[in-house]
Design a protein around this nucleic acid. Structure first.
Lengths: 276, 276
DNA sequence: AAACAGCGTTACTGTGTGCGGAACAACCCC
DNA sequence: GGGGTTGTTCCGCACACAGTAACGCTGTTT
């Protein structure tokens, strides 16, 4: 019998702040105050300002600010008596960005992607002038593609590689191209640098790369980068399968792929609306 | 009786839970939990782990994590049952950095400075008796210096720190010197207060500071302040590199540095001809 | 297999604690 | 100097949070 509500003396409005089960209301309110600083365009905020925006009492806001201030998350300008975010906030942000390993964040998305396309989904990261697969999820069917994790691949052959190359800076891209001749891995590998440049421009334009037997005979794939808040490719996701049936699936795979990488890029801090 | 709390007061993790008058203990504990994620080298943390590290009960930690999770500051990996920082933490950090307008103004100048000197250019701001790096631009060469953003450094060791200290008011400077002994960070750190005073006078005179392994062994740098229209140092720009090769470059670096800070100070409203 | 050990999670109850309302104290602006 | 702001403090009561302990779960050990 949940008879908890003993008619207290009219608490008035009661904004019905949803408490999800066993959380601490005070902490949630403190988090609201903190996040309000991140969401409001103004740099500094006053106590009443916050109290009105969040529907809290001035006293409560003041206590919360005092507490956060002790821990460096909030700073107080003594002369103007206005509050702003503190260095602790920056430490948190940098810690988040430093520590995400893309692999952990991308893992569930790879599962989704593999299920929706019924093909293999992979994740690659770059190490210098090479790329390695760090994760893959294979679909539950008989004929599938499977890649070798941890093996180095050059950046000019295959969809995942080209997706990396296309989203590097001009300087880095030219640096790679100047390393030497483009080694052919199959008969379909692009070995002409002018043609590769055109292809990379097209990839940047469309947001994804595709490959039919460029890196490995019989394998086809589409790939798109995960971008961080600088717009740099921290990893590349691909969908790949046997070339015979993949042609018919390309359109669908690209659509699902871009949905996934868009979500992942957002988690890495990339704001697509800012740049494109 | 453990006598660990003798001299070094910086990393005192002692139970001395200072409550500054009218703060909320629960919120402070929540902040402790949050900051623990930023301070611990591990990416993910478990409930017990946090509880033991902070001397709290498992139940309390669990409730706090649940609350922070609702607001996106903490994420929970459902499969491993381990917690990590959430995207909200990143939003806070990026919001903090966006608000330091000197950072936005200085960014292009740091790029220029790094290109012209072929060394790392950094930007620092002051928070109380400490200084933190808030931005850096590294050159495109192999052996370079790189600093950690967001970490607090004392004001007496290293070029950037001394540049701050030298351009504060006499009162603020003496206040810092009266805090206690000058802690040596390397064998080259200036620990004699009389000598530091002479050095600071010289820095004010010349307009820039230099350091060879004072803050970090193997690192050398020159630094100069960005002054606002009151003549107060709002930030410090430095050029730094490996000590072996830096000696030969100092003259050139100082010249380029002062060009940059002169432009930036002008943008901040400082009129050198009035007081310089 | 089966017992163990460690984890995260939940239930419960008393009490310490944060809550709101209002009084107080600095401003600022006519 | 008065009205209207603001941020801050006081205060007592109700209630929400803390701790203890038990729970279920997963993976490891014997």
């Amino acid at each position: 019998m949940p008879t908890k509500n003993a008619g207290t003396a009219t608490s008035g409005k009661a904004p019905a702040r949803e408490n999800s089960g066993q959380a601490i209301a005070t902490v949630e309110r403190a988090a609201d105050v903190l996040m309000h600083f991140a969401e409001t365009p103004s740099n500094t905020l006053g106590v009443t300002e916050i109290a009105e925006a969040l529907g809290m009492s001035k006293a409560a806001v003041h206590r919360i600010l005092a507490s956060l201030r002790v821990r460096g998350l909030i700073e107080l300008d003594q002369s103007t008596r206005r509050y702003s975010l503190g260095v602790g906030a920056m430490r948190l942000g940098l810690a988040y960005l430093d520590r995400i390993d893309v692999r952990r964040i991308a893992a569930p998305e790879l599962v989704t992607l593999s299920q929706r396309t019924d093909e293999t989904a992979t994740l690659s990261i770059r190490t210098g002038n090479y790329r390695i697969y760090v994760d893959q999820v294979t679909p539950a069917r008989e004929v599938i593609m499977s890649v070798n994790l941890g093996v180095a691949h050059p950046l000019h052959a295959g969809a995942s590689s080209k997706a990396f190359l296309a989203f590097l800076t001009e300087e880095e891209m030219e640096n790679y191209l100047s390393l030497g001749a483009l080694e052919p891995l199959t008969g379909n590998t692009i070995v002409d640098k002018a043609r590769l440049r055109r292809e990379l421009a097209s990839i940047r334009e469309g947001g994804y790369a595709q490959s039919f037997s460029e890196r490995m005979s019989g394998a086809a794939s589409v790939a798109a980068p995960i971008l961080d808040h600088h717009g740099r490719p921290v990893a590349v996701v691909s969908v790949c399968g046997p070339v015979e049936r993949f042609r018919a699936e390309v359109g669908e795979c690209v659509a699902r792929l871009l949905e996934s990488t868009a979500r992942l890029s957002a988690q890495m801090g990339w704001n697509a609306s800012e740049r494109g």
